[in-house]
């Protein structure tokens, strides 16, 4: 897609140069340190961390803490979740539904199946409802036209039906097996 030409702001701004969208939001903000289960440290602005309901309540319970340990979260999905939340903060400051939709769509499109699947428990644990919705929809879209075998493999599920049981279920909704993508 043409993401490099028409949306440079979305990709470059997020990563390094901490974005200071020129006007009203340009106040110096407090940083919060998050520590992943594999001991990586993430410094994020307070406003971003407060998007994580879990982190927010952690701070409300123990305000003096300087580092929040996230024992259930590894570095890679955490960094992706932070990237998402940074953008959402901008949309909160300057609401633009069309841009937000576009960003959310691009965010999931460029992720691998594994990235999506890894982020879902993280978004759930950190209680980031918007992201969880976006991820669930993205996974739903990816499996929609797939075969039963593909979906088992996608979620790491073993078939525990007998051949007869499975055949009976397939007969019951034979039309639902038509027009399915090749694996």
């Amino acid at each position: 897609m043409s993401s490099s030409t028409d949306s440079p702001t979305l990709t470059t701004e997020t990563t390094q140069l901490s974005p200071q969208p020129d006007t009203e939001t340009a106040k110096p903000t407090k940083k919060i340190t998050l520590k992943s289960s594999d001991n990586q440290i993430f410094e994020v602005e307070e406003s971003v961390a407060m998007e994580f309901a879990t982190v927010k309540s952690f701070f409300e319970d123990s305000p003096s803490t300087d580092t929040v340990p996230l024992p259930n979260v590894t570095a890679k999905p955490l960094s992706q979740v932070i990237e998402f939340c940074k953008e959402q903060i901008k949309f909160k400051a300057n609401p633009d539904e069309a841009q937000k939709k576009k960003y959310n769509a691009e965010f999931v499109t460029e992720k691998s199946d594994k990235d999506l699947v890894d982020m879902i428990p993280v978004a759930n644990y950190l209680e980031i409802k918007d992201l969880l919705d976006v991820l669930n929809q993205a996974v739903a879209d990816r499996i929609e036209n797939k075969s039963v075998e593909y979906v088992r493999s996608f979620f790491g599920i073993d078939n525990d039906f007998t051949a007869e049981e499975e055949a009976a279920l397939r007969r019951e909704h034979a039309w639902a097996y038509e027009g399915v993508d090749e694996d």
Binding site: N136, Q137, I143, V148, V151
Partner: peptide, 19 residues
């Protein structure tokens, strides 16, 4: 939550995924 966002046709097929 994922399956709630999946269309009916797919869901009927996915009954076969596991018990």
């Amino acid at each position: 939550k994922i399956l709630l966002k999946t269309p009916i046709k797919s869901i009927l097929r996915f009954r076969c995924v596991s018990q």
